[in-house]
Design a protein around this nucleic acid. Structure first.
Length: 826
DNA sequence: GGAGGTGACGTACC
DNA sequence: ACCGGTACGTCACCTCC
């Protein structure tokens, strides 16, 4: 029987001692299908150089006789084959050692301590990863499949009978098809409770949203509720709420069940309440309950349905490109959907009136609507990640970018006949973490001032293009200088002058990155020519992958960790940044700015066309795939002094492009730990100065603000300072204002933990003479007058002082009411 | 008891 | 444990005189 099949969710089970993959997906008509499949299970034993055939044969015989009794499982080596393989830049002979169960590989490898064997590899990938590598049943790709129907079979413990799918099949043949179109069924959910601690309060309501489905299930009595709210469904009690929840999930039967922070809150809460009330939360297609895995952050898996915690994916894939200052659902939804959460003032449920309940239901529904709509924005990206990394959606949506880079590499090794490197041991991780830091990028020391007609060049994917162009990796690093090899610039590492050498021979690690960079370019071009969601997702996935590759090499948990390669990459980054600065200056421009991969300079009357030609010439001198790009032309830009010292501040500037767009970096305007007022005032000042170079107008504006502050006309909301709590309160050695605010919150039993944003303002003192700012801290709703002196001298002035200093205006004197010092008076 | 340096801390840039 | 080095700025705290 032939079928078309797209795999979505991956799991595995043991049956008669063997491992089987259990993959849930859809067929071409949208019916749910479960396939069961197995694969060869093996690892590699890399042999020492120079063993003769006889010795190898003897060794194979010895290995083939290995029998173990581990954890009650009788296991043995099934067979052993000799192969020629590659391993980290060497050609090696390796034994492929087959076993029955993947879990036994580690133990068998542990018994191969023979002197002929140099290394054992490939037993630590996890069965599903191993299976996907072996059988190439890659997530979210279409296959034509054939096999035996198991619907009424007792085979594999009666899996066909016990799982709620339209068809269950033992896979015999699969052929990859050349299409990827797939529109998943999506459901979003959200719960509301009285207590935030997991399981300690009751679940008051739960909302569920799907394409044509929206529901709020509640057991809280409020019969007078308006009839318009037809999506509210009443049940008897919390028990029934939990049952109804499972029932509706089953009824809609989504491919993806999406929540926001649902790994850490909603699902553990549901499970905890279900346990307490002795209700089975049988969400799985096989009626199983959600399973929890306690890592650094807990994760929750539902059998057959992919539970996606959107917060996690947004965090790894998007946060660095986002404007939002927190990753709260409200802010993220506002940024991507132009729509926020409903307003609702939380009180204990016992104190709510009918109208309150109505808005509570609305609020609860809206959270699921937002989560659902966000998922619609991101699902193309998520499944593209799964296709590119070749790992299931559950994993790629939660993994950090380093883990994703590694998945990509691991799944592409067989094309290079390369044996996978092992994960670092605990000891190795420890060593790597405490190693000395290596020198980072170069940052140009700017001269403060207002500049006109500026151009900025930057390198495209600089780190990645260096790794590719100079063939840097753990596998290509040479122990010593060789003829015709790559030499790094000389640089300092652990206090010693060092230079590293790399082979020019092609190797999987830089080659794969080269492919990523190439594909990224191709998809970006295709996207520009004819935009669509898949191309956009693809282009984005490859961009993120390329950018994370360098970080991966220096990440202590990486299989292909190479501090030498990472440090060399940085040495080249410094070299080419300085190289560009020199070339630009030599050409008659004036470099005013430079950071890592970018250089900014004044045109000095040269034309844009001439500058573009010059860029072309520079590019012809760059090696490999390195490329310098034109970031843009800017009408004006401002650089200021540091607050301490007379030098120009690095990483702090503001630019206005030719079409009037303002770009602000590093200034208080873009820092969330400054009050709104200070940020807005600085932003306005920068705008006025950049738009028409008129600092007088800006000064007048600041004066009106100062007056407002002095007259207490400023809304306190504008003066709140927000700082993140990075660890638990007791761990702080220095008691700063935000720690005091956090303590106050704790006293009021407002839940706070590491990661919480603490909000407070600085108030006037109650007559007594206090010195420390922390003694004037008040929570937003605490009564009090704002501290005029603090907001003038510690917020507004510091934000604008340095800007006016560029025009030789002393702001402090103006605030104090002294006469303005102008340039003319000097 | 005020000046000034330093460490802890948070956040941004790339 | 889930990129990491460079950099700025505030506030508390210490030392020094």
């Amino acid at each position: 029987m032939k079928k078309e099949f797209i795999p979505v969710d991956y799991d595995y089970f043991d049956w008669h001692g063997r491992n089987y993959a259990k993959i849930i997906g859809r067929d071409e008509k949208g019916k749910r299908i479960c396939i069961v499949d197995s694969c060869d299970v093996y690892f590699w034993a890399i042999l020492k150089d120079g063993l003769d055939e006889k010795k190898i044969k003897k060794l194979i015989d010895k290995i083939n006789r290995i029998q173990l009794d581990v954890k009650g499982r009788n296991t043995k080596v099934e067979k052993t084959e000799l192969h020629k393989k590659n391993f980290l830049g060497r050609k090696v002979k390796a034994l492929k050692v087959f076993a029955t169960n993947y879990k036994d590989l580690h133990d068998i490898a542990g018994n191969l301590g023979m002197p002929e064997i140099e290394k054992r590899r490939g037993y630590d990938l996890g069965f599903i990863t191993h299976y996907i590598i072996e059988k190439k049943i890659i997530p979210l790709n279409w296959y034509e499949i054939e096999g035996e129907i198991l619907d009424n079979s007792d085979e594999f413990g009666g899996i066909g009978k016990n799982i709620d799918v339209d068809l269950c099949m033992r896979l015999e043949k699969a052929k990859k098809l050349d299409r990827q179109e797939f529109t998943p069924k999506i459901m979003a959910f959200d719960i509301e409770t009285d207590e935030l601690k997991i399981g300690e309060g009751e679940i008051l309501m739960v909302s569920l949203v799907s394409e044509k489905f929206r529901k709020v299930i509640t057991w809280k009595d409020s019969s007078k509720i308006s009839e318009k709210m037809d999506y509210v469904e009443y049940v008897k009690n919390e028990e029934e709420l939990l049952e109804k929840f499972s029932e509706y999930v089953k009824k809609v039967s989504p491919d993806f069940l999406a929540g926001y922070f649902s790994d850490g809150f909603d699902l553990p809460y549901l499970r905890a309440r279900a346990d307490k009330l002795k209700i089975k939360l049988n969400l799985g297609l096989d009626d199983s309950q959600p399973r929890f895995f306690r890592g650094i952050t807990p994760t929750c898996r539902i059998n057959g349905i992919v539970h996606v915690d959107l917060l996690k994916f947004i965090q790894t894939a998007y946060s660095q490109y986002m404007q939002s200052e927190t990753l709260s659902l409200n802010e993220v939804a506002n940024e991507f959907l132009n729509e926020g959460k409903k307003k609702f003032e939380f009180r204990h449920s016992s104190k709510l009136k009918t109208e309150d309940w109505e808005s509570y239901f609305e609020y609860n529904l809206q959270d699921s609507v937002l989560t659902y709509n966000l998922f619609l924005k991101f699902w193309q990206d998520i499944i593209e990640f799964a296709r590119v990394m070749q790992e299931p959606v559950f994993e790629v949506s939660r993994n950090g970018m380093s883990k994703n880079v590694e998945s990509f590499i691991i799944h592409n090794l067989d094309r290079f006949n390369e044996i996978p490197e092992k994960r670092p041991t605990h000891g190795e991780i420890g060593e790597r973490r405490y190693r000395e830091k290596y020198e980072g990028a170069f940052v140009f020391q700017p001269t403060p001032g207002l500049y006109e007609d500026i151009c900025i060049f930057d390198f495209t994917s600089m780190h990645a293009s260096i790794i590719v162009s100079y063939n840097l990796s753990k596998a290509t690093l040479l122990e010593k200088k060789k003829k015709n090899c790559i030499e790094s610039p000389e640089f300092e590492l652990n206090g010693k002058k060092r230079k590293f050498y790399f082979s020019k021979e092609k190797s999987f690690f830089p080659e794969l990155l080269g492919e990523i960079v190439g594909l990224r370019k191709k998809y970006k071009k295709e996207l520009k020519e004819k935009p669509d969601a898949i191309k956009k997702a693809r282009s984005n996935a490859f961009k993120l992958l390329a950018n994370a590759y360098y970080g991966y090499m220096g990440f202590f948990g990486a299989r292909y960790y190479s501090i030498e390669s990472a440090a060399t990459t940085l040495a080249f980054v410094r070299y080419y940044n300085k190289w560009t600065i020199e070339k630009v200056n030599q050409k008659g421009y004036n470099v005013i700015f430079g950071d890592t991969d970018s250089v900014g300079f004044t045109l000095n009357k040269k034309s844009g066309e001439e500058t573009k030609q010059f860029l072309k010439k520079l590019n012809s001198e760059l090696p490999g795939i390195m490329e310098l790009d034109l970031e843009g032309f800017f009408k004006r830009g401002i650089w200021v002094t540091k607050r301490t010292g007379e030098f120009g501040a690095k990483k702090k500037y503001a630019l206005i492009s030719e079409d009037g767009k303002i770009k602000i970096r590093g200034f208080e305007t873009v820092r969330r730990d400054w009050c709104r007022l200070a940020r807005n005032v600085q932003n306005e000042v920068l705008k006025m100065i950049l738009e028409d170079g008129n600092e007088k107008k800006a000064m007048d504006y600041v004066k009106t603000i100062i007056k407002k502050i002095k007259n207490r006309e400023v809304d306190k909301k504008q003066l709140m300072i927000r700082t993140q709590l990075k660890k638990s309160i007791s761990e702080y050695k220095a008691i700063s204002p935000h720690v005091i605010a956090a303590r106050k919150m704790q006293e009021r039993e407002i839940p706070i933990d590491p990661g919480s944003l603490i909000e407070y303002y600085i108030s006037e003192t109650n007559g007594k003479k206090t010195e420390l700012i922390r003694e004037k801290v008040k929570l937003p709703d605490e009564k009090g007058e704002y501290n005029i002196k603090y907001y003038l001298e510690r917020q507004i002035l510091p934000a604008v002082e340095n800007i006016f200093q560029v025009f030789k205006i002393n702001t402090k004197e103006i605030v104090d009411g002294k006469k303005q010092t102008t340039l003319g008076e000097f």
